[in-house]
Simulated assay, not measured.
Amino acid sequence: MNRRLPTTRMMRLLAGLGLLVLLAGCASSGDPRDPLEGFNRGVYQFNEGADEYVIHPIARGYKTVTPEIVDDGVTNFFGNLGEIVNFVNNLLQFKVEGSIMTVSRFMINTTIGIGGFFDVAGEAGIPRYKEDFGQTLGYWGVGSGPYVVLPLLGPSSVRDTGGLVADGFLNPIAYIDDDAWQYSLIALGFIDVKADMMRTRDLLSEAALDEYDFVKTAYFERRENQINDDAEGEGSMMYPGYDETFGQDDLDGAQDE
């Protein structure tokens, strides 16, 4: 039996993301955080088109045909898998309480919550301590590096892109040997995130004059807050940061301007 190591896919992903950054080296910007602005805006527009014509129609269909209890269960399932990432990164930051609570959440939801489909721990008042490797690097003093907009995944930075790849090694889905099952679960998790974010995305379109600059600024502010433990985010285990870029308070503030 020819089992492929998950590291092969991860190395290809890392190499591909690195190549995108290198190819963008000729683009420049007046914002020191965003020296690749020309490239990033191009990817941002690509993501907008993909959302409008492909991903959001699929996400709306998913919302339409999926009963709410099943939709919530899917979100809870992926969130429960994400507790593995949360635990390791809490541990790497010596956050003892977060580590203990994360283990408790995972054990309760995996057993009583039937594989994580029900957030029993959350109902019992046990909070989620969301941490990813990008936050861990920031905690230990690693700067964010240039802003990067990832195809389909959205706002990131060089540091957080590396963290995303590192966290991928902790994703149990990466170790599924059956490609059909693996890609199906990745696609389901992605569509579930997109479906849950559609209302926020619509509000963003109404609130911001320059969506690109608004998202970039909100991304850096929120990541700084998360590193300093000033903000908590639920997030997705496969796309940490994607659904945490901005919160309702950010959108309300933009609408007031």
Results as ranks from 00 to 15, higher is better:
Pro6Leu: 03
Thr7Gln: 11
Thr7Glu: 10
Arg12Ile: 15
Arg12Ala: 14
Arg12Val: 13
Leu14Ile: 07
Ala15Lys: 05
Gly16Lys: 00
Leu23His: 02
Leu23Met: 07
Ala24Asp: 05
Ala27Arg: 04
Asp31Thr: 00
Pro32Asp: 00
Asp34Lys: 01
Leu36Ile: 08
Arg41Phe: 06
Arg41Glu: 12
Arg41Cys: 11
Tyr44Trp: 10
Phe46Val: 09
Asp51Glu: 14
Tyr53Val: 14
Pro57Arg: 00
Ile58Asp: 04
Ile58Tyr: 02
Ala59Met: 05
Tyr62Ile: 01
Lys63Trp: 07
Glu68Ile: 15
Ile69Phe: 12
Ile69Asn: 12
Asp72Thr: 12
Gly73Glu: 05
Thr75Ser: 14
Asn80Asp: 12
Gly82Met: 03
Glu83Cys: 05
Val85Gln: 13
Phe87His: 10
Phe87Asn: 08
Phe87Gly: 09
Asn89Val: 07
Asn89Tyr: 09
Leu91Ile: 10
Phe94Asp: 14
Glu97Ser: 12
Ser99Thr: 07
Ile100Trp: 13
Thr102Leu: 04
Ser104Thr: 13
Arg105Gly: 15
Arg105Pro: 12
Phe106Leu: 12
Asn109Lys: 04
Thr111His: 03
Thr111Ile: 10
Ile112Glu: 13
Ile112Trp: 11
Ile114Gly: 08
Gly116His: 00
Phe117Thr: 14
Phe118Gln: 13
Phe118Glu: 14
Ala124Cys: 08
Gly125Asn: 00
Glu131Ile: 04
Gly134Phe: 04
Gly134Asp: 05
Thr136Ser: 03
Leu137Lys: 08
Leu137Trp: 03
Tyr139Trp: 11
Gly141Asp: 05
Val142Glu: 15
Gly145Met: 11
Pro146Arg: 02
Pro146Gly: 02
Tyr147Arg: 00
Val148Asn: 04
Val149Lys: 00
Leu152Val: 09
Ser156Met: 04
Ser157Asn: 09
Val158Asn: 08
Ala166Lys: 04
Asp167Met: 08
Phe169Pro: 08
Pro172Trp: 00
Pro172Ile: 01
Ile176Lys: 00
Asp178Thr: 09
Asp178His: 11
Gln182Lys: 15
Ile191Met: 05
Lys194Glu: 12
Met198Cys: 03
Thr200Asn: 15
Ala208Val: 06
Leu209Met: 10
Asp210Ser: 05
Lys216Thr: 15
Ala218Ser: 07
Ala218Val: 00
Tyr219Ala: 10
Arg223Ser: 03
Asn225Lys: 13
Asn228Val: 05
Asn228Ala: 11
Asp229Arg: 15
Asp230Ile: 09
Ala231Val: 08
Glu232Tyr: 14
Glu234Thr: 13
Gly235Val: 08
Pro240Phe: 06
Asp243Trp: 03
Thr245Tyr: 09
Gly247Ile: 10
Gln248Arg: 12
